[in-house]
Design a protein around this nucleic acid. Sequence first.
DNA 1: TTTAAAACATGATAATTATCACATTAGGAA
DNA 2: TTCCTAATGTGATAATTATCATGTTTTAAA
Lengths: 230, 230
Amino acid sequence: MSTKCENCVIRQYNALRVLNTEDLAEINATKKLQSVSKGDMIFKEGQRLSGIYCVRNGATKLSKITASGRDQIVKIASKGEILGQRSIVCDENANLSATALNDMEVCFIPKSAIKNRIAHNPLFVKELLVNMATELRIADDMIVNLSEKTVKQRLAQALLYLKKQFGEDPLTGDLTLVLSREDLAAAIGTATESCIRLLSDFKKKGYITTQGKNIKILQLDALEELTKDF
Amino acid sequence: MSTKCENCVIRQYNALRVLNTEDLAEINATKKLQSVSKGDMIFKEGQRLSGIYCVRNGATKLSKITASGRDQIVKIASKGEILGQRSIVCDENANLSATALNDMEVCFIPKSAIKNRIAHNPLFVKELLVNMATELRIADDMIVNLSEKTVKQRLAQALLYLKKQFGEDPLTGDLTLVLSREDLAAAIGTATESCIRLLSDFKKKGYITTQGKNIKILQLDALEELTKDF
DNA sequence: TTTAAAACATGATAATTATCACATTAGGAA
DNA sequence: TTCCTAATGTGATAATTATCATGTTTTAAA
């Protein structure tokens, strides 16, 4: 995969796709490819961002540490997604922390380059707008989910999401994106022990199997049924 | 208050403020002032919107009916805020329902007028973008709140929010925006009975008094302390 | 004003979820 | 490898929250 923005396929997934040759030249001249190791923090809540990060590879959690010390994952971002665009658009400090869930490659694009594009390319602004509006809908839906569904339902939903979004290992059938029990709990908004307990329950019922951190879904329909219950 | 967009002070609160005379002329020519009675639904989840609504007066809840029949309030919008802009931007059906919490006046602005402004006024698009980005931050924070805080903390927070956002009656000291217990429960994501029980608890402790649906905050500091606990 | 319906309120109880304690296992460093 | 630490897993229990039942009060309509 080329590291030249002009040839980069990754940007097809985000607002950068509408940039013209001239725009891309500046982005390309100023961007920096970075390797991020699993567990590394790309940026931290409250930090002033000097640019955005375009994810080339790997996945990251966007989360916030709560007063009680736990953290709540608001979103998982992966290939093609941009981190930090909300903060840059609003000229605010980061509202969430971004932590690598596995080894990643990201392109750092300095704020100035993005601000220039925003100032001069209306099409780009509109793309950003549509993107942000979509994220808002997803966040709104998550609010409804958190208050409507039980922890069990949210866990089932999270497993289905992981399968749909990141797929399964073609050999073993295990979910490709491997989360620690702690992260999985943080994603569905519950205590780690509760999450583990429910996974055990799913195992007992034959919905899934586990091997270490790996999870394999056996009965998709059972999990889907669970998410619908009320 | 004038009903001519050119002289309308309401639009100072939202993205419409950056429109020029020419833009405003088209908006003004096509907009329609509407009265909405308390309890009326302005639009419903899933509905195709033919425009946006600019709130001149009153307040509305933006909510979603859950599978179990309850509804969860995602946001309360009032004077100066625009309803439906997300759906128009994304060309999607409404994701939330908008229901008047009291008698309202709203200006309906047809989709075409807004789409024209988006197509021709980059400044307007940028304003929308910043607006949407801010709403996204608020939604993200709500996600963290819902999973971090107890119902009691969220109720305390909601009361403080109502005071800050809508103020108190200068005579009685009651919160200006009056919500039914059911709506208050829907806003904090709990059962109506739980909400009522906690209000009784707050009363017993002397934090608030109630008279019918009216609520008066007596001990602001106590409620603030509650929201911080862990 | 009367009356019916809706909203409010509270008790009893069940279900869900968190917390604490502790055992086991896995994974990485010396 | 061996050891240490962190993660996983489970039990016991407490706390929180939901649900159901039922009575009371408000509200609004006839």
